[in-house]
Design a protein around this nucleic acid. Structure first.
Lengths: 135, 135
DNA sequence: GGTTACGTAACTAACTTGGTTACTAGATAC
DNA sequence: GTATCTAGTAACCAAGTTAGTTACGTAACC
C-alpha cells in the first residue's frame, strides 16, 4: 500500500457508512471489503473514534457506525482525525544555527502552515453527504 | 534528522551561497558547515544542479556555486528541484473498486492538487535575494 | 603523474508502516 | 454462569525509505 493508505481506508469506510448510517459493521467486515486486516481497520477507525466521528461497541452484534449524520462529518474532520500533517510540525529540536538558515526556514514554514490551513478550510466545505450526491 | 532534511540542507546551502555568489565551495566544506556528510551534500546538490540552480566543477579548485543570481532563484525553484510532493501523486495503480471511494478520493485529490499548486505559487513569490534582507 | 573534488554504487542503521498473531476485556446469547 | 462474539492492544515481522558511510571511478588542474 502507499503512503496515505490510512486516509484511503478512512474515506472508503466512512463513505460506505454514510450510505447506511444505521448499519453496524464489524472490523472484520470492513477489512474484508477494503482488502486489508481487521487490526489495521481498528487502528485507523480508532483514530476516527477518538475524534468523535465513529462509535464502536464490543460484544455480540457490536461493531462500528457513524457517531453523527453524514451531513455533519466533513472531509476536514477525517483528515484532521488522522493527524497526518502535510507540513512537518516546526521541529523545536533543531535550532537554526545560522541566521540565514533560520530566515529561510521561517519563510518556508510560514507559507506551508498557511497553505495547510487553507487545505483544511477547503476540505471542511465538503461533507460526507455531499459526496454521496453525484458530482 | 527529520523528514525534510533535504529541503533544510538545500535552503541552508543556497542561503549562504546567495551571500557570496562568486565563492566556490566544496561538498566537504558544505557538509562540514551543515553537520552532515559530503556524499549526502552531493546527492542533494545534484538535484539542484539538474534543476539548473547550481553548477559544479571537478578537479582542483572545483566545487559548487550558484548557476544564477540569487534574485533569479525562488523558493519554488528549490522546492520543485527536490521533487518531494506534498500530495502523493495520484496513484494510477490503485483502481477505485467502489464508486463511492472513487468519488471521495477524487474530491480530496482535487483539493490537494489545487492546494499544492497554490503552495508553489506562493513560494515562487520569494527569491533567495529577498530573504537575505531582514524581514 | 599526482592531487583535488565531483559522481556514484554499495552497504548499513534507524525509522516508518502495513500486516499478522495472540491475548485481554466487555457485551450479548444461551 | 458459560460460551461466543467483537473491540482494544501489545508484540512482532517484512518491506520500504532515508541519512550516513566507505570505496572507487572520472575529470580538471598543478
Amino acid at each position: 500500500m502507499k503512503r496515505n493508505s490510512r486516509l484511503s481506508l478512512a474515506l472508503h469506510t466512512l463513505g460506505h457508512m454514510a450510505g447506511k448510517p444505521d448499519r453496524v459493521q464489524t472490523s472484520a467486515e470492513i477489512a474484508d471489503h477494503a482488502g486489508t486486516n481487521a487490526v489495521v481497520v481498528r487502528r485507523v477507525l480508532g483514530k476516527l473514534r477518538e475524534a468523535g466521528l465513529l462509535v464502536s461497541e464490543k460484544g455480540h452484534s457490536g461493531g462500528w457506525k457513524l457517531a453523527r449524520t453524514p451531513n455533519d462529518i466533513t472531509l476536514a474532520d477525517i483528515y484532521l482525525a488522522l493527524d497526518e500533517q502535510l507540513v512537518p510540525a516546526p521541529d523545536e529540536t533543531d535550532k537554526p544555527h545560522c541566521s540565514i538558515e533560520h530566515a529561510l526556514h521561517a519563510r518556508v514554514s510560514a507559507i506551508m502552515t498557511d497553505v495547510e490551513q487553507s487545505l483544511i478550510e477547503r476540505l471542511s466545505a465538503t461533507s460526507l453527504a455531499d459526496v454521496r450526491e453525484p458530482l
